[in-house]
Design a protein around this nucleic acid. Structure first.
Length: 543
RNA sequence: UCCUCAGUAGCUCAAUGGCAGAGCAUCCGGCUGUUAACCGGAGGGUUGUAGGUUCGAGUCCUACCUGAGGAGCCA
């Protein structure tokens, strides 16, 4: 099989590129030889954009190999191909009536090139398919700032180098119109991204109406009312791409470590946490509740599948109105058999570092758009997290930050911020009083007679606050029953959960992560509602 | 749920109790290297709602609505 370098040398194209059909490198003119005609991924199109051929990376490898064997001298395929293979042209609408103004017109869709890959094709003629995110003009020049989801690029349209129709299109195209722009890719330091498309052909797919969001600062309420349109802007783009990276890298880490993803029910008959408020729904006449955590189900699954995690939306009807709370958010719970608290903390730390490292590596452009301080994230990636007993954390806060906290007070938002500021890396605050924690946590009586849960909250720096939590679960049937009774809870409601302890119970530990809080922290974004495509908060239910 | 603040053009904001203003956006015109381009012109108003004080209220008072920030709770 040919190496990527070999393919590039022979063809002048990198793996993954989409050479136009008319392209004919020396000694390689019949790239599509007879042996390739049978490949289903091969597609040739002919339309206003010229004859074009789409090749997958695998095709390129095969093509380069084939060239070495038998390409020389054969020129049959050039005549055979267009008739032999169907064109990838979108079928036209059959409606005899003229389309309404807002209807997307039937057009021939040319092969396109993602903006994020343009830098690999300097000098090539390509077609960018996307939207006009902004437009600037200067006499005989129009600069089209294009967006296709993968990135942003500026196309320069010069009056003297396009036809009348394309010039008129470029001049009159409105912001957010969908369009096809063909041109030669070139390095251009005057362009915002250093790369520019020298446009030869401009065509609109649909002219956009006057877009309600301009290029300026707006109040949050205005933007969230238009969230369905705001997601086209650069800041949401950067945040949601970092969100994607975070979500992906968590599941990647867990899978690589042998964890099985198991999904827990969203409709649940009981509370998982005993403190938070639930959304109630009517379930064929009976009350059910939207999940606030899959934790209890995950513990049952652990006894069948070993290392497990779940990842999905959860719902809390708390009257919380802060920049750290959503009513609908995603939660990742994991559970590890035969693990103790130290193992849970080490695992959580490794997982967070994996995610932070991946975001630094793969989402650099997005972090720069958000003007994020990278050194703070690099320090997190490279430094061991702090581990601290709650009482020691309180001593630090009282001594160094003039706070007045008792030995077993829960940490306030201000206390969390000070703690993050003090260390500059995430801090595990360990062993809270059991009375403030959930009934399923294993607990012990300390030297001063305080009943403490074996647990830790992970507090992130830079004002991010609590981003994750982990704990050892109570594995004794009798003690769990006692925990529920002490709190006045019905053991009948939790009978299935208690049942798990009766058949080969084991010590185990696990935790929960709030990915949106991680995203808020990594992006440095002020409010958590920016970290989810369509936020649900106390005051927001639309769009 | 509690505390604090805000609401004026499509958007961001001005306006001592005395004529309702600017920038951006939109439309028209100009400019062959723009970077939220720039320059010239035009259109655009039930000042959140209801009531009150006053010769006169965007401005003062009361209630309500909406939003923002913070608290508690949590991921």
């Amino acid at each position: 099989m040919a190496s990527p370098e070999r393919i590039r040398d022979v063809s002048g194209y990198q793996i993954g590129s989409i050479p136009p059909f008319s392209w004919q490198p020396p000694g390689f003119r019949t790239i599509v030889d007879a042996s390739l005609l049978g490949e289903p991924v091969l597609a040739v199109g002919s339309g206003t954009w010229g004859n074009e051929i789409l090749l997958s990376p695998a095709d390129l490898v095969r093509a380069a190999s084939a060239q070495a064997a038998n390409l020389t001298g054969s020129d049959l395929p050039a005549q055979v191909l267009p008739a032999a293979i169907e064109t990838p042209v979108q079928s036209k609408t059959h409606s005899p009536a003229a389309p309404a103004a807002t209807e997307t017109p039937a057009i021939e869709i040319p092969a396109g090139m993602e903006i994020s890959k343009l830098h690999l094709h300097i000098g090539a003629e390509v077609c960018v398919r996307g939207w006009l995110s902004n437009k600037r003009s200067s006499g005989g020049m129009v600069f089209l700032e294009l967006r296709d989801g993968s990135g942003f690029v500026q196309a320069a349209v010069e009056r003297s180098s396009v036809n009348e129709e394309c010039w008129a299109t470029a001049q009159t195209m409105t912001r957010e119109s969908s369009c096809l722009v063909r041109g030669v890719v070139k390095a251009e330091e005057r362009a915002p991204t250093g790369i520019e498309l020298n446009a030869s052909h401009v065509q609109t797919v649909q002219i956009a109406e006057n877009f309600p969001i301009g290029r300026k600062e707006y109040a949050p309420d205005f933007l969230f009312n238009l969230r369905h349109l705001h997601v086209r802007s650069k800041q949401p783009w950067a945040i949601l791409r970092i969100r994607d990276e975070v979500f992906h890298r968590f599941t990647e880490f867990l899978r690589n470590d042998g964890y099985t993803r198991v999904d827990t029910p969203i409709l649940q008959p009981t509370h998982c946490e005993d403190s938070t408020q639930l959304f109630q729904v009517d379930y064929f006449g009976d009350p059910m509740y939207l999940s606030q955590s899959g934790q209890l189900y995950l513990e049952a699954l652990l006894h069948g599948l070993g290392k497990v995690y779940d990842f999905g939306p959860v719902f809390r009807a708390e009257q919380s109105k802060t920049r750290k709370h959503l009513c609908e958010f995603w939660m990742l719970d994991w559970e590890t058999p035969f693990a103790d608290q130290n193992a849970a903390e080490d695992f959580l730390e490794a997982m967070i570092k994996h995610v932070v490292g991946a975001v630094l590596q793969h989402r650099r452009q997005e972090l720069e758009i958000l003007k994020r301080d990278l050194t703070a994230l690099q320090r997190v990636r490279d430094t061991r997290f702090v581990r601290l007993e709650l009482r020691n954390a309180i001593t630090i806060l009282n001594d160094k930050y003039q706070m007045v906290l008792a030995g077993d007070d829960d940490l306030s938002a201000e206390a969390e911020e000070k703690l993050g500021e003090h260390f500059g890396v995430p801090v595990f605050v360990k062993n809270y009083p059991y009375s403030t924690k959930a009934f399923y946590m294993k607990h012990y009586r300390d030297a001063e007679g305080v009943e403490r849960a074996i647990c830790a909250d992970l507090i992130a720096p830079e004002g991010a606050g609590e981003i994750a939590t982990c704990a050892v679960r109570e594995s004794s049937y009798e003690k769990l029953v006692g925990n529920l009774r002490d709190r006045g809870q019905s053991t009948e409601e939790y009978s299935w959960y208690l049942d798990v302890r009766r058949y080969g119970g084991i010590p185990h530990a696990g935790g929960g992560i709030g990915p949106e809080r991680i995203v808020r922290w990594l992006t440095g974004i002020h409010h958590i509602r920016e970290t989810i495509p369509f936020p649900r908060t106390l005051v927001r239910r639309l769009p």
